[in-house]
Design a protein around this nucleic acid. Structure first.
Length: 457
DNA sequence: TCTGGGGTCCTAGGACCC
DNA sequence: TCTGGGGTCCTAGGACCC
């Protein structure tokens, strides 16, 4: 455990709304609500003026409108927020090399990594005030709240105590008593469901939690959650500040203004989503093996269907095909209000099955990552590849491995053809094309894949 | 007033292999 | 021939966060 409060948690105040007020002076001092402005919209951020009327994040926009009809209701401008966020994060990185962004408006800063040691409360207070001033300057006037402590947990909770525009430094050694009187819900990870379970065990405050022994806690909330909660409650949190965390999944989803029943319309929307997911994968130089389709019914029950390919792909056609298949397997009777398409099990290497033998020379750098890969996949088939078979006709490769290749014999005209597995050296199976699948479907758009200087995520 | 979009992590059951 | 434990992968769902 650290002996000085060298972890900062920086949280921009009402970020999206503050950016809108910065850019439109007529909105300053007035209630501003940013979020979905459609029929099924939800509030992302309410300015402090709007919060006076009870408008909160995650509230439906319809309710917000009834509580505060005279507020300005604005759709989110993520590009602008991203740009501002980068300017703010740059100020933190100027202070320390170790910065962990949690979202566009939040980050941890590790002062110890900047060589700042034996910090007093006054030192940290002064550093925080300076950082706030730098952020304000760099962002065109935005305010931030800063919490500081010997751990992430303490810093995070502290930043919330004097919002907006505040600084709270928790002295080393006072962590457990700082937490004790608070409700358990101040601990990140304790939401309504966990709070309910804990209250049935008589636990409402962190002090209650500190009394409870770990085994009993685990019995109530499960093993992973229980042991982490036990450690956090007793303020023994040694989680390090981590600067780059790798992306685990990429997804797109959309809630419709009215429920959709038409399968062909959904298929078309799913195709577009698959293409957008693919674009984002390619931009991030990622590919993934698991495709997931998410549906939300009219009654808000949510279902996912997923399928894992034998090898990773970023090909829009493959993702779209798998998504279509998964959507066909989904029950949409009664209509759905949301459709989503995502890819996970990400790999940051390019699958070399995408290249023919002669093209290997063009991608020598990828070879360093080959030991990560199962041997069986190096068979010359890749997911989505078009093939033909004299008996079954035209199909495409679903996956390959262990010397076998699985093919779905389906085309636009025969959408539900058979699925068959062959030996990889089965001569009856013919590849329709041996060239790398070109990114043809996005090639015509001038605004994608060309701008190398586009904003990074 | 009905409930966004982007994520992360965990759990549990079944398949499969050794 | 029967029983089984452990490990890993996959799938589905749920809780939670901003």
């Amino acid at each position: 455990m650290r002996t000085d409060p060298s972890i900062l948690h920086v949280d921009l105040d009402a970020f999206f709304a503050a950016v809108e007020q910065r850019d439109k002076p007529s909105l300053r001092g007035k209630p501003v609500v940013v979020g979905g402005i459609g029929l099924r919209g939800v509030v992302s951020t309410a300015s402090y003026e709007a919060r006076k009327y009870g408008v909160r994040s995650a509230m439906s926009t319809a309710e917000a409108r009834s509580r505060c009809p005279h507020a300005a209701y604005l759709g989110a401008r993520f590009d602008v927020y991203r740009e501002t966020s980068q300017a703010v994060m740059a100020q933190m990185r100027a202070l320390s090399p170790l910065v962990e962004p949690l979202s566009l408006d939040e980050a941890f800063v590790d002062l110890a990594a900047a060589g700042l040691n034996n910090l007093t409360v006054e030192d940290v207070q002064a550093i925080s005030e300076d950082l706030k001033a730098a952020i304000k300057e760099a962002s065109g006037g935005l305010t931030a709240s800063v919490g500081a402590g010997t751990s992430k947990l303490i810093a995070k909770i502290a930043s919330d105590l004097d919002k907006p525009d505040g600084v709270v430094v928790v002295p080393a050694g006072t962590e457990a008593e700082f937490l004790a009187p608070m409700q358990v819900t101040v601990i990140p990870g304790v939401g309504p469901a966990t709070a309910q379970r804990l209250s049935m065990a008589g636990v409402r405050t962190v002090a209650d939690l500190q009394q409870l022994d770990e085994d009993e806690l685990i019995r109530h909330v499960g093993s992973a959650h229980g042991s982490s909660l036990h450690r956090l409650a007793t303020a023994s949190d040694d989680r390090p500040v981590v600067s780059d965390r790798e992306t685990k999944s990429i997804s797109i989803e959309d809630t419709f203004e009215t429920d959709i029943i038409d399968r062909s319309l959904l298929a078309a929307i799913g195709d577009r989503m698959a293409h957008r997911v693919s674009e984002r994968l390619q931009k991030a130089q990622l590919s993934g093996r698991t495709v997931t389709v998410k549906t939300r019914m009219h009654d808000f029950t949510t279902h996912t269907r997923s399928s894992t390919l034998a090898g990773p792909t970023d090909d829009p056609r493959v993702i779209a095909r798998v998504a279509r298949r998964l959507l066909e397997d989904s029950d949409i009777s009664g209509g759905i209000r949301l459709l989503g398409v995502g890819v996970s099990s990400l790999a940051d290497w390019i699958q070399d099955d995408l290249f023919t033998e002669s093209e290997h020379a063009e991608a020598p750098l990828e070879l360093v990552d080959l030991p990560e890969r199962p041997r069986e996949r190096q068979v010359g088939y890749y997911p989505g590849q078009d093939v033909t078979h004299p008996e079954y006709g035209q199909g495409w490769v679903w996956g390959s491995g262990r010397g076998r290749v699985t093919v779905r014999f389906e085309t636009a005209s025969t959408p539900a053809g058979p699925v068959r597995t062959f030996a990889v050296d089965d001569p009856a199976l013919t590849k329709v094309t041996t060239v790398k699948p070109p990114p043809d479907e996005v090639g015509g758009d001038k605004d994608v894949a060309t701008g190398q200087d586009g904003p990074d995520e």
